[in-house]
Design a protein around this nucleic acid. Structure first.
Lengths: 161, 161
DNA sequence: CTTCCTGCAAAGGCTTTGCAAAGCT
DNA sequence: AGCTTTGCAAAGCCTTTGCAGGAAG
């Protein structure tokens, strides 16, 4: 999968994220174990969107040999709850995808159905309209998913050749 | 799952839909078998969003005893390709959801995370903005998913009591 | 020490697939 | 006849869970 380059979290942000994680865990009577911290670090620094297997691979690449698949599955919801990552790319719904989310600005996705490229976009007008719609129906918005599917410029060029 | 009342397809629309289905199948060297037609009818007339098991139940209710689960799984992509139904409700991504789509106006969904109510909305301004965004990035849009999650008025009222 | 965590293995749930019989055209 | 379609059963895949030993505070 391709995606535009992101900036990976810097060290101080990472520390803040871990502190947040620890706090969330603590509030629930849970602990920030060695394994959980390792998983959190790798997930937070992941460049782009990932699913469980990608994360496993990244963990192995980071020499975290001892993070078992089942543990990763158990940790992911905690990372989401703590706001370190968020579920995303729903329309590729064969698997569950995530992306780093800690202190990252909200954005949505433009996905090329031909080459898989993912472009992130943000557009305040959407947010405003969404709030309007929600209000119109008496809803209090808590989240939204917005994915645009299509063909990117290069795939279109390739096709018309 | 709750949803606002929809109008179910009338008979002439259903006939048109079946003709479309037959055409799509024919174009691919496939046939409109008895079972496929039965599945198409029930799916098209389904009131609201459904997943495979819902459809199985509806088939049984319609006395279509002979539609095997595997056959339904094989038929669904064909129905999507023909435009009779469309995948939807992605954020409940545990399962694959669909809804009737033939000659239905495009709409998106507002979903109450507390009671599950689904409200359909359409708002031209979104469509325009989406096209703008896509163009800005050189994309040619083919589809989009847009789901707003929140709490509906009655759940909010219940919570504040 | 007491509670939580983790690896392991097994189970679960949804979906897909191989195959032989049945169905169309 | 020659093809597609289907039921059936088995396999596949991702994800969850029970458990017993290990880790953490």
């Amino acid at each position: 999968m391709h995606y535009d380059a992101h900036t990976t979290v810097d060290d101080t942000t990472l520390q803040r994220a871990l502190a947040t994680f620890k706090q969330t865990l603590h509030d629930r009577g849970l602990r920030l174990s060695t394994v959980r911290e390792a998983i959190a670090r790798v997930a937070l620094r992941y460049d782009g969107h990932f699913e469980v297997n990608d994360l496993m691979r990244a963990l192995r690449a980071a020499n975290v040999q001892d993070a078992h698949l089942a543990t990763v599955y158990r940790t992911l919801p905690l990372l989401v709850e703590s706001g370190l990552i968020q579920p995303t790319l729903l329309s590729s719904s064969e698997r569950h995808f995530y992306e780093p989310a800690f202190e990252r600005k909200h954005h949505d996705h433009l996905i090329c159905t031909s080459c898989g490229r993912v472009v992130e976009f943000e557009f305040e007008a959407f947010e405003v309209l969404q709030r309007d719609i929600a209000e119109r129906y008496g809803f209090e918005l808590t989240a939204h998913f917005h994915e645009l599917l299509g063909r990117c410029a290069s795939c279109r060029a390739a096709a018309s050749r």
